Computed example of a mutant assay.
Amino acid sequence: MKLHPQTALIHAERKAPQLINTIQPPIYRASTIIFNNTAALFDRHWTDAYDYSYGTHGTPTTFTLGDNIAQIEGGNYCLLAPSGLSAINLVNACFLAHGDEVWVADNIYGPNMEHLRNLESRYGITVKVYNAIDVESFQPSEKAKLLWLEAAGSVTLEFPDLINLVKKAKANHILTALDNTWGAGLAFNAFDFSDQHLSVDLTVHALTKYPSGGGDILMGSVVTQDKNLHHKLFRMHAIQGIAISGDDAAQVQRSLSSMQIRYERQAETALKLLTWLKTQDIFAQVLHPADPDNISHTFWKETCQTEQSAGLVSVIFKPEYDMTAIRQFCDALTLFKLGFSWGGPVSLVMLYNLKDMRQLEHSHLQQGILVRFCIGLENADDLIADLQQALKFIEK
C-alpha cells in the first residue's frame, strides 16, 4: 500500500540497528508506549518489575536511573519524582490518613513540615514534633504511623540519634522514613547502618543535590527494600500521575559516576572551612556534625563509620550582629552565591532566623542569626579569602 508522504513520515521504519554498546545508556522519551500485540497488552501487570505500559510508569531510561539510585542507597526498589519535595509528599500521601499521628524532627526540612501542617489542618492528621538528638522527646501514641528522620537536620545540621530513634519506632510498629539527601547514600547505608543491622523502612532523596551535581535538574526518589511498601508507593505514584522526563533522568544518570568524587571533595573543603571558621571571633557557634565539639558528633560517628560528611557548614553570628549586618556580609560575598539547595559546582550561602523556624527550645544552639554555607567545587583557600573579605563589611 502506497502511503501519503505525511503518513509515511510518521510511520517511517527505523532501519538503523537500535542496539549498540555505549558508555551512557540511550535516552527513551515516551508518553505512549507501543505494545507488540494484544497478548503483550493484557498479559502484563503494574507490579511487574519493568512494566512498560505508559510513560508515567517508566521507560528503560527512568528504570535504569531508579535501579542505580536504589543500589547507591542500599535498597531494592526506587520510584522517581519531579523533586525532592514531591517524593516527600508521595510518602505522606501514601502512609497517612485521617486520625493518624506523624512525628517530625524540629530541624526537619521546612517544606516537609509545612506540607504536614497543611495535611493536619485539612485532613485531620496530628503532627508531633521531637528533638532529633533526644530520643526521650519522641513519645508516640498508638495512633502513630510515621516517623520522619533527617540525617543531618536542615540548617542546624544536628545528626540524629538514629539508632535509638529507629529502635523505638520499630518497637512501636511505626514506619520510618529518612530524608537521606545529606548522606546521599554515601555517608552511611540507611538500610544497614549499625552493628545491629538496623534499617529504616524507606529513604527520600533530593536527587537535585549530589546525584545531579549541576544545579540544573529537579528530581527526587523514594527507595525501599520491602516489595509490599514499594507496591503501595507505586500505586500512589500512579494515582497521582507522578513522572519525570527521560532527558532529566539521563542527565542525572550521566552525573552518577562522579558523585562520590564530588561528595568527598566538597566534604573535604567544608572541613577546611570549619577549621577556619572556628578561629573567627565574630561567630558564636560553628555547626558541623564531624566537629568533635558538636553535640551530635557521637551520633554521627557511630552511624557514619567511614567518617563521611557532606559539604555543608553553618555558623551562628554573635547576638550583637543583627539581620542588617548579616545581610551586609552575604551581599559582600563574591564566590558564594545567594541561593537555596546544594551539591552543585558553585558554593552557596543562605541566612536564617532560627526564631522563625524552630518550635522547641534547643539549649545547645547559641542565640543569633544563622548562615549556612553549601560548598561547591572551588578551591578551599579561595572560599576562605572570600569569607574573610566579606566579614570586613559587617557593622554592629
Rank of each mutant, 00 (worst) to 15 (best):
P211I: 06
H57E: 06
L65Y: 01
T56G: 11
K272I: 03
A177W: 03
F95I: 03
P160E: 05
H11Q: 14
H4R: 10
K232N: 12
F63P: 03
G58L: 01
E136N: 14
K170Q: 10
V313R: 05
E150C: 12
N189Q: 10
L365F: 09
Y109P: 01
K355A: 12
C78G: 07
F329G: 05
G220T: 01
N107A: 13
L96Y: 12
K15N: 14
Q359N: 15
L178C: 07
D226H: 09
C304F: 03
Y130K: 11
Q266N: 09
V135K: 10
V104Q: 05
A93L: 12
F193H: 10
R358W: 04
H173D: 15
P60E: 00
S314H: 08
T47Y: 00
I394A: 01
C304V: 09
S86P: 01
E307Q: 14
S341N: 04
V286L: 02
I174G: 00
S309A: 15
A8P: 06
Y263T: 06
I261A: 14
A177V: 13
T269P: 08
G153K: 03
G183E: 08
G376C: 10
K232L: 13
D195R: 11
D248C: 10
G185N: 06
A325V: 12
L351Y: 15
K355L: 06
T62P: 03
L198H: 11
G66A: 08
D331F: 07
F340L: 15
I27V: 15
L202H: 00
H237M: 14
A290W: 00
S309Q: 09
V315G: 01
F191V: 11
E395R: 07
K318S: 14
A171I: 10
A187N: 10
S314T: 09
T176H: 06
I375E: 04
A284M: 09
I72E: 02
V104A: 02
F234Y: 07
A250P: 06
D248R: 08
